[in-house]
Amino acid sequence: MNIFRLVGDLCHLASILLLLLKLRASKNASGISLKTQELFLAVFVCRYLDLFTTFYSVYNSVMKVLYIALTALIIHMMRAQSPIRGTYDASQDTFLHVKYAVAPCAALAALTMLVQGFDVRDLFWNFSIYLEAIAIVPQLIVLQRYREVENLTGHYIFFLGAYRALYILNWIYRSFHERGYKHHYVVYFAGIVQTALYVDFFYYYAISKYRGGKFSLPS
């Protein structure tokens, strides 16, 4: 464990809690992509199959269970809880059909198995790495469409992006400080793609913080 990874994980947890707070406080899901949340749930479930096979630490297991449970709760609130359910606008959340996200990631994961050798858990793990890289795209598109970004929604995405950026620093740290550290180039590639998706958002978020006004995206 290093400081980049720990703070990264905590930013990830904070982002999820911020989104839950936004839903609870405003009773409103406008500006939030249900597709992104469902893709994240698929990412967590596929990646954390090792909860049943490998024990790393209490910290590791607790965080995994929290990510899965809290994301499932967000989805439940958006799909089934009144009045939040009525405020979710599916017509704005249309950018990416889930199957067009899942199918290429599954194909890439299968291709990766040709290189690495076949293993069912590795197949799901690689799939989750590819899927996580693009899971935020529907959310970023919804933000573009609404343009005015609520404070808590903005903070949610800021913390998610911070988590990804800190993970890049974590890999650099690990490759220097851990003897025999095994490089996962698939993870690096997907992680850099994912972080790059947040760059545009970070830019406008920083400008709005600097000016102290409302946060809105350019059309």
Binding site: M1, D9, H12, N60, W171, G180, K182, H184
Partner: peptide, 10 residues
């Protein structure tokens, strides 16, 4: 450190 693989990451 005992860790040596990105698979222990979240």
């Amino acid at each position: 450190e005992e860790d040596e693989d990105a698979k222990d990451e979240l």
